[in-house]
Amino acid sequence: MSIEIAGLTKRFDRTDVLRGIDLSVEPGELLALLGPSGSGKTTLLKIIAGLEWPDAGRLRVEGQDWLALAARERRIGFVFQHYALFPHMTVRDNIGFGLSVLPRGQRPTRAQIAARADELMAFLQIDHLADRFPGQLSGGQRQRVALGRALAIKPRVLLLDEPFGALDAAIRRDLRRWLRGVHEATGSTTIFVTHDQEEAFELADRVVVMGEGRIEQIGHADAIHDAPATPFVARFMGATVQLPVTVMGGRAQGPGLDLSALPQVALRDGPAQLFARPADLRVAPDADGPWRVQTLASTGAELRLTVAHPGGAEAEIQMPRRGAPTLSRGAPVTLAVQAATIFADAPIEKETAR
């Protein structure tokens, strides 16, 4: 099912939660909404589901105006972070619940509901749990039951809100691979919300990075990682070192900075801001270097240090310990940047969690 969203806005009291969302989702696509808390991703998902209503904008699925439809008319499968299973129902009954409450004219017979539940339990590899209750299941098993319940009604669109957020890291990794297989087997159009970058990039065909109610960038993992479109995306993707530079003839330069590894940039001459990841920085001892080592620690495999410039700039660096130069606190160094993104006139600001 294709989804077209245009100019979607939503405000809660005086807070703008969505600020003009434009997004197209292709039939059969697995799309991730990625961003920090407060970015609007869950609100967008709920509007698609019919659990929230926008203040303005359009939402069309296969050309049909979904804002004119109630949630029950949209045939949505929704999987919540905390499962929302009925504790008094068995696995089989939980999976069949959505079918049992369909309008009478659309409701399958009891035998058909039981057959669909059995089919899904076998597909999700939980048929041996059919007669257990949610309280007797592990977190990963409960999440499979929740997905089975969402798939039972053969949804036109499958929506997942932080589906693995309540699980430990090892189970999340296993379930990510499993969910990708389920998506490919069902061919459904799927949208899931996450704040986990690894999860988004491993699972999704495309990733939508959201921040403060806006779409900041849409793309694939490599493009977003290597070429963040905005300072927000750069910081969110781990480019936490932000340094003032000057662009001259397409080349960035700064005192005590070796930027020779960076390609030319299509920016006008003048002040700019460089965003880099700590792992993309290196230092070299230099008696004339303006940077000074402030802190220095080793994890065995890696050196972690901070350096400071007399002008007030600071940088955190992570570099392999093997082959690293001998360093000490207070030592003068130059700072080499191996990879970075540069934006013109981007003010220095610290990202705050929301």
Score class of each variant (00 low, 15 high):
Arg354Glu: 12
Glu216Lys: 01
Ala229Asp: 01
Ser188Cys: 07
Val25Gln: 03
Ala340Glu: 03
Gln253Phe: 12
Gly181Thr: 04
Glu199Tyr: 03
His128Glu: 07
Ala221Ile: 05
Ile5Cys: 07
Val337Glu: 08
Met89Ile: 01
Ala229Pro: 02
Gln143Gly: 01
Gly57Arg: 12
His82Ser: 06
Gln136Cys: 02
Lys46Val: 00
Leu203Glu: 09
Ala223Gln: 10
Gly289Ile: 04
Ala169Gln: 13
Trp53Met: 09
Met121Asn: 07
Ile348Ala: 10
Ala169Asn: 06
Ile218Lys: 06
Phe12Gln: 08
Ile5Arg: 11
Glu212His: 13
Leu102Asn: 02
Gly249Ser: 09
Glu162Ser: 00
Ile21Asp: 10
Ser260Asp: 14
Ala146Arg: 00
Gly40Ser: 03
Pro108Ser: 08
Pro231Phe: 15
Leu305Arg: 04
Gly254Met: 11
Gly270Ile: 05
Val17Arg: 14
Ala223Trp: 07
Ile48Gln: 01
Thr334Val: 09
Val157Glu: 01
Glu314Met: 15
Val25Cys: 13
Arg292Glu: 03
Ala170Arg: 11
Ala324Tyr: 03
Arg144Glu: 01
Pro244Gln: 03
Ala272Met: 04
Ala221Met: 09
Ala272His: 04
Asp161Tyr: 02
Pro36His: 03
Val283Ile: 10
Ser138Cys: 04
Pro320Asn: 04
Glu314Gly: 15
Gly63Met: 13
Ser188Gln: 13
Ile171Gly: 00
Asp269Arg: 06
Ala252His: 08
Ser260Gln: 14
Gly289Ser: 06
Ala152Gly: 10
Ala252Leu: 04
Ala324Phe: 00
Val333Gly: 08
Ala84Glu: 00
Pro347Ser: 11
Gln217Glu: 11
Leu303Pro: 14
Gly238Cys: 04
Thr326Gln: 13
Ala308Val: 15
Gly165Pro: 02
Leu167His: 00
